[in-house]
Design a protein around this nucleic acid. Structure first.
Length: 723
DNA sequence: CGAAAGGCTCTTTTT
DNA sequence: GAGCCTTTCG
């Protein structure tokens, strides 16, 4: 097969430019993944480069997996030796091998965000402050920022200019110490420590530089400074660095991704070849134009000329509903209509939203109307309590100094060790300068002077310790599944969880985890354990998305990056949701919100629906909202909607969703006045408190007995007058 | 010690 | 509306 044959001239240029640095700026749907895959294939098949001398970095594991499949088809031969994965996964692998050189225990565990927050709480307390006064999340973000700039605690403290920064610096210092004590790394450490390793150990760097003749980085617009530095180090010898990105799709600045990396690249590699991919193969002309209208309003951007040979396509449908429930109903209804004609499958449809919380109303509607859907993440599987408990046992087996895991499960299932005994244990460990696990050993060996705990507690602790020791001992001979079963059996975890609320469901989750573990059962005992723990920590939510299942996809706009669907619904097109209210006072963040909207629209191949709800419950209470400013950037000629609504000079299409009315028992809305008694199918009986005309309708306030006062829109509410 | 209940805050997006 | 923390009681 000719690798270049299926490429357009620009793509071909990007593939063939194998000597020296290349910067590919690629619009949505311009085939950048394809270019990366073909470039690797070209290197291997045409240029005879050994796959083990190529590193390709993707944004998610899913993208890596797809790349691998693609390559399999292109290069049929072995691409096993290729280094392919996310920055985090690749760095974890490097540190596992080489970390010793900078004092990293090869058995290190990786702390996810939840672990990080609880360790931070301990750190804040550790420096004598109150975690309630200094939000751990805010400090976490500051520390991530510091690590993204490769600042060690001391560097950070030297540069601190405010009281808050000083606090962060001190907490950071303590936090880092606790991580080291636990033989643990957080996500940011994975990257930062590798850069550090390469800086401190030139001979190791040189080995890696020599190995990697070619580097490829996808989604370059969402890399941060550490990642940039890492690539710079690795590519230092051959400078064959190929980066692909699109500034208009940069949506991770809150994770300290830095668009300036693109500028730095041009500066650090002045000889870099620039390739623009501007032909879109994904979307219709109208979708592309709609997206361009939205993104063009950004000030901080270079204009781009995207074009497509695809057909003109449909207008974008803009719809307004009354509540988020009706918004969800509209989506369900529309999906039903589309799929009823047979041309569209459920799997062709995706519903995208700004915040995870928005998925609930959607899910409820999909469940109620019996439409299959796949929710990307939800309450993320690996963050569930029961799953994390079991993982904590396994982590402790790999690395007993992991104090976060130890403290998590020392009393789960309950063993009668309370908060008091725990803090006693922790402070004793601290006074001896040893990790909790070592402290346990010392206490049991009675090497502490006088007994610290009552004989009952000492006995329980001894039991826990020998349990852990048993797991550790057996972990050298059992495969992962056997080890997991042993943990469940010896802790009586099944009995414990079945006795909890939602026990059945939680037990199912454990079985699901066991299924994941099966994939590692053939590895050598300890290797399987390490690989599994790394895998479950570094998964991203989209990784679990299964294209072969025919169901509607429910997904955040962030997760949707890199994906495509024939039909795209974007819900919550409201001021405060998209754009999110947190971005109101910062123009740069506002531009990112716009890019997020752009990413959403450009996922679509055939049709786009932009939907907003007039009222939405946010943080418990229901609030009214204005249409998203992004809607007014789309000219009316690109929009369709049943019934146009003229407002404030903008033409916003407004489709009054008639389904409810059609299926309501009373087709005609009753004439109501204050004091009338009414019946609502859901809320029961009530009395009209007020009745005010709004556009095309009436807003009725009804006091329902037992439920309180509700605001309803007359045409939707299915109210019946009771005489 | 632990279960249950009440009260508080805060919510964006994620490797 | 949820999750976390504290309080209270057995």
């Amino acid at each position: 097969m000719d690798i270049l044959a299926e490429l357009n001239p620009a793509q071909r240029e990007a593939v063939e430019a194998i000597n020296g640095p290349v910067l590919i700026l690629a619009g949505p749907g311009s085939g950048k993944t394809r270019v990366i895959a073909h470039r690797v294939a070209y290197l291997v098949k045409v240029c005879d480069v050994s796959p083990r001398r190529i590193m390709a970095v993707t944004f998610t594991n899913k993208a890596a997996r797809e790349m691998e499949e693609r390559l399999h088809r292109l290069v049929s031969g072995s691409v096993r030796d290729l280094t392919l994965g996310t920055f985090h996964a690749i760095c974890a692998r490097i540190l596992r091998r080489e970390g010793k050189a900078i004092g990293i225990d090869p058995k290190f565990v990786i702390y996810d965000e939840e672990d990080q927050i609880s360790l931070l709480k301990r750190s804040i307390q550790g420096v004598g402050l109150d975690p309630k006064q200094y939000a751990p999340r805010a400090i976490a973000s500051a520390i991530t920022a510091a690590k993204s700039r490769m600042l060690a605690p001391q560097d950070y403290l030297e540069r601190s200019h405010s009281y808050f920064e000083e606090v962060v610096g001190r907490v950071y210092e303590r936090y880092q110490q606790l991580l080291t004590d636990s033989s643990a790394l957080d996500f940011d450490d994975l990257l930062m420590k590798v850069v550090q390793l390469f800086r401190n150990c030139p001979e190791i760097l040189s080995r890696y530089q020599t190995r990697y003749l070619h580097l490829l980085v996808d989604e370059f617009q969402d890399t941060n400074l550490v990642q940039y530095e890492l690539i710079k180090q690795l590519g230092g010898r051959y400078r064959n660095i190929c980066v692909v990105g699109d500034p208009d799709q940069s949506i991770y600045s809150w994770r300290f991704a830095d668009l300036r990396n693109i500028l730095s690249f041009e500066k650090d590699y002045p000889e870099a070849k620039l390739v623009l991919l501007e032909q879109n193969y994904r979307s219709t002309k109208r979708i592309l134009e709609t997206a361009s209208c939205v993104i063009s309003a950004n000030q901080q951007r270079k204009p781009k000329e995207l074009w497509t040979n695809n057909e003109l396509g449909e207008l974008t449908t803009v719809v307004e509903t009354y509540t988020e429930q009706e918004e969800a109903q509209f989506v369900v209804h529309e999906v039903e209509c589309l799929t009823a004609q047979g041309e569209t499958k459920l799997g062709d449809c995706a519903v995208m939203y700004r915040t995870n919380a928005q998925s609930r109303a959607l899910e409820e509607a999909f469940v109620r109307y019996g439409i299959p859907y796949k929710l990307v993440a939800g309450t993320r599987f690996y963050e569930r309590r029961e799953v994390k408990d079991i993982i904590a046992y396994l982590r402790l087996t790999q690395n007993p100094y992991d104090s976060i895991s130890l403290l998590r499960i020392i009393n789960v299932p309950q063993r009668g060790i309370g908060q008091r005994s725990l803090s006693e244990l922790s402070s004793w460990a601290k006074s001896k300068g040893v990790p909790e696990y070592r402290a346990l050993q010392l206490i049991i060996e009675q090497k502490g002077n006088e007994p610290l705990f009552s004989s009952r507690i000492t006995k329980v602790l001894a039991g826990f310790l020998s349990l852990t020791e048993e797991f550790i001992a057996r972990s050298w001979e059992l495969n992962l599944v056997e080890l997991l079963d042993l943990v469940i059996e010896r802790t009586s975890y099944k009995e414990y969880i079945l006795g909890q609320p939602d026990g059945e469901e939680r037990w199912e989750n454990i079985l699901e985890l066991r299924t994941v573990a099966q994939q590692y059962r053939d590895l050598k005992p300890r290797e399987g354990l390490a690989a599994f723990l790394e895998g479950v920590t570094l998964v991203s939510d989209v990784d679990g998305l299964d294209e072969s299942v025919d169901a509607v996809t429910l997904i955040t706009l962030h997760q949707a990056k890199g994906l495509e669907f024939p039909i795209v619904f974007i819900v919550g097109m409201e001021e405060g949701v998209l754009p999110h209210f947190k971005s109101f006072d910062d123009p740069e963040q506002m531009e990112e919100e716009r890019r997020l909207c752009y990413v959403g629209i450009t996922r679509a191949k055939q049709r786009v629906y932009l939907i907003r709800a007039f009222r939405r419950s946010l943080m418990g209470s229901s609030t009214a909202s204005c249409p998203s400013r992004f809607l007014s950037d789309i000219p009316p000629r690109l929009i369709s909607g049943a019934g146009l609504w003229q407002g404030e000079g903008n033409q916003i299409a407004r489709a009054i969703y008639s389904w409810n009315k059609a299926s309501a028992p009373s087709v005609t809305t009753p004439e109501l006045k204050v004091g009338d008694h009414v019946h609502h199918p859901q809320f029961g009986n009530g009395v009209v408190v007020s009745c005010q005309p709004v556009t095309d309708d009436k807003e009725v306030v009804v006091a329902f007995s037992g439920l309180g006062v509700k605001k309803l829109l007359l045409s939707f509410a299915r109210l019946e007058k009771v005489e």
